[in-house]
Write a protein that binds this DNA or RNA. Structure first.
Lengths: 131, 131
DNA sequence: CTGAATCCGAATCGATACTG
DNA sequence: CAGTATCGATTCGGATTCAG
């Protein structure tokens, strides 16, 4: 447990704390969890269904990290079987609004990016065959 | 070369292209490059110096991906030795403005996050010893 | 200076089995 | 349902070496 000893960069990180935060939220699953919970409170399984592609392990891991950063709230209801709800804290909500800007940017520029990608690949294909 | 065959999720990705874009920019180095180039055009070595902690390999890799997505422009000047400048395309600049919002959020909430992290760790320490 | 290529240990991640 | 624990496969990423 607690393997946050990333060998070096500790000095760098403490000198520039923004970097550490950025490293944390510039994460695929974190962003997707933030976006999902930004819409509504969800249970573990629901969350996992929303973020198709995430494994149980990764989701758990991501949720723990986010909880420790005060971004989400984990509420356990002592039912049988147990019910666990995840929701955003006020801090998490403010991040959600921010990340949503990124999401909207992505949505608005898919075309451009896919086109650029295609052109890049065409350029790369060097002319096989007769030359 | 070109190993973009991520086995599964291809169906998912084509059904939800935003996800693919998000996966790409929700990346530590990509964000830092965007932020760095958002301020000014930089050469390879300058860029590497700005983003302390990135290896030559990762930086090259990140830059290639961003170039293929049409986010940055790579300009080679045939000097001796060769000079290569990286700058943002208009698309890259628009992303830079977006990512900057995230950076500002991070900067403005470092305190809250670090505090939450500390509280979380205190809660976790269970009381070793006598119980 | 810029970068490609290789080697190789470290970290990530998924699948599986098991618990309360 | 909501996890924890473990293991093997894959990927990541740094150090090094070499080239234009």
């Amino acid at each position: 447990m607690a393997d946050s000893s990333s060998s070096r960069w500790n000095m760098l990180k403490s000198a520039c704390p923004t970097r550490e935060i950025l490293d944390r939220i510039a994460d695929k699953w974190t962003m997707l969890v933030i976006l999902s919970l930004g819409e509504e409170t969800l249970r573990f399984t629901q969350l996992r269904a929303r973020i198709e592609g995430v494994s149980q392990k990764m989701l758990t891991q991501t949720l723990r990290g986010m909880e420790s950063d005060g971004l989400i709230l984990r509420t356990v209801y002592p039912t049988v079987p147990v019910t666990v709800e995840y929701s955003l804290t006020p801090l998490g909500h403010s991040l959600a609004r921010t990340v949503d800007v990124v999401r909207e940017w992505a949505y608005g520029h898919i075309g451009e990016i896919l086109l650029a990608r295609q052109e890049y690949n065409d350029r790369e294909t060097p002319r096989v065959g007769i030359g």
